[in-house]
């Protein structure tokens, strides 16, 4: 979806706002949203891609008018409703009106589980069919315009690049965003696009390039 999140190459956004000696969190509410999100994703079986997708569907004015952790908060509220954990009325009251399904993680074990996740991560490698593209091959990013979740930025669509590396299979983020955790893996490639292919005469330097990791369904033979 070429929603508000898909902003690679957009202009008119001003200078990069640098803050010297920036703290990890700016205020208590940001800390709580971070901690609460991390816990609730885990205990409700929410994937990071589901949260990304929820943010991509935010109205433009809300996406750009929100601070980073406000977007997390929006996403968490909506996901808890979508997952059947809470109702809109409960969100407004801040109190439970009905018992939801049991959480995926026993609350008494949650602290240990979230810390374990931060330390150990979660591997998404998954066997995939034989790769359809080879290292060194010229490929084109497909021209697509899906209304659902995707990880092919608009600025690459229709552009030619070269396969730089073939990573093998991973769970496809489109599956993760839809909560389909058991699908077969999909091949992922690193593709290098020259700056002049992407930006034409406006490229800062024709020798520059952009490398990006793209799944097989986003690529075709040119």
């Amino acid at each position: 979806m070429n929603g508000p999140q898909d902003i690679g190459g957009k202009q008119g956004l001003g200078t990069v706002p640098y803050e010297p000696d920036e703290p990890v969190f700016h205020s208590e509410w940001e800390r709580r949203v971070f901690g609460l999100s991390f816990c609730s994703w885990l205990s409700s079986g929410v994937t990071v891609d589901e949260s990304r997708w929820m943010q991509a569907t935010m109205p433009y004015e809300r996406y750009y008018g929100s601070l980073y952790y406000e977007r997390w908060l929006y996403s968490l509220e909506r996901l808890m409703v979508e997952k059947g954990v809470a109702t809109q009325e409960e969100l407004e009251r801040g109190a439970s009106l009905a018992d939801p399904a049991l959480p995926v993680v026993e609350p008494s074990e949650l602290a240990a589980v979230v810390v374990g996740l931060a330390k150990n991560g979660i591997k998404r490698e998954r066997p995939a069919p034989a790769p359809g593209f080879e290292v060194g091959q010229t490929v084109r990013a497909k021209v697509i315009n899906p209304s659902g979740y995707d990880r092919l930025p608009t600025y690459l669509r229709g552009r030619r690049g070269a396969v730089d590396c073939s990573y093998g299979g991973f769970v496809h983020p489109e599956d993760l965003a839809a909560g389909r955790l058991e699908e077969p893996g999909a091949n992922c490639y690193r593709v290098r696009f020259s700056a002049s292919e992407l930006w034409g005469e406006s490229a800062e330097n024709p020798e520059d390039s952009v490398c990006i990791d793209l799944f097989e369904n986003y690529l075709e033979q040119p």
């Binding site: 609730s40 409700s44 954990v85 969100l91 018992d99 959480p103 609350p107």
Partner: peptide, 9 residues
């Protein structure tokens, strides 16, 4: 709400 529902502690 989420603490009450056992999704966070």
């Amino acid at each position: 709400l989420l603490i009450e529902k056992g999704r966070a502690t």
